[in-house]
């Protein structure tokens, strides 16, 4: 088993290349649907579902599809998956279907999905691609969910629809608040990520020096 490779894929999707905070892709649904935590998580999971399956199918067909028509073929596969999830939601979870509105079909043009198809799935084996899609989706879900929780709490005083506090700062659920909160999240996430990276680098550097000194002593 190649655990380090899988671990690498997972940390890549969730942290290092987090699509929402690090790459700033798929911004439209992130801004529009994080006004409530439930919608944000729902959208994240829908993206995860589609990303995992689209990566799987595209990886499966990567040797069949000629290079010249790969983009239309990918779009066809992704659009089919989006239509399927749209039917499923309309039938079984109409609440989410209604609150997603126009952003549900727009998953087709979400840059994350086509980006992972182009950047990963068409060069890698099936299992790796599925895993990559899954963890990128989870990165999306966590980022959007976190923003949803914060915005809903500050804007409506509730947590997943449960009223916790009797205050509301409507700015945070409004369009303007969406931009503000997203900007702050990107800043904080990147600052934290850089700080951790620096620490790890320093540690590695120290280890490296130690190794060198041991070698020299020998």
């Amino acid at each position: 088993m190649n655990w380090s490779k899988y671990k690498n894929i997972a940390t890549n999707g969730v942290l290092k290349n987090n699509p929402i905070f690090r790459l700033v892709l798929g911004t439209c649904p992130t801004l529009a649907l994080t006004g409530s935590a439930l919608n944000a998580f729902g959208m994240g999971l829908a993206v995860t579902f589609i990303l995992t399956l689209s990566n799987t199918f595209i990886s499966l067909l990567r040797k069949v599809i000629p290079d010249e028509v790969r983009i239309p073929a990918y779009v066809l596969i992704i659009a089919t998956l989006v239509t399927i999830i749209r039917m499923l939601l309309e039938k079984y979870i109409p609440v989410l279907f209604e609150s997603f509105g126009v952003y549900l079909p727009l998953i087709v043009v979400n840059c994350i999905i086509l980006g992972r198809a182009e950047g990963f799935a068409n060069k890698n084996p099936i299992f790796d691609s599925a895993l990559d899609g899954f963890f990128t989706g989870i990165g999306c879900t966590l980022a959007m969910g976190l923003m949803g929780i914060v915005r809903e709490f500050l804007g409506a005083g509730s947590f997943f629809g449960m009223q916790l506090m009797d205050f509301r700062i409507e700015f945070f659920t409004s369009a303007a608040g969406a931009f503000f909160v997203y900007g702050m999240f990107i800043a904080i996430f990147n600052a934290a990520y850089k700080a951790i990276e620096n620490k790890i680098n320093k540690k590695n550097f120290a280890l490296h020096l130690e190794e060198l000194s041991i070698k020299e002593n020998n």
Binding site: V69, A73, A79, I84, L88, E90, K91
Partner: peptide
């Protein structure tokens, strides 16, 4: 290749549309 994918996708959607009809 494109036609095959399109046909498979279309067929799949047609079936699902029947199954999930509201």
């Amino acid at each position: 290749v494109l036609t095959t994918i399109a046909l498979v996708c279309g067929g799949l959607l047609a079936i699902l549309n029947d199954v999930l009809y509201i």
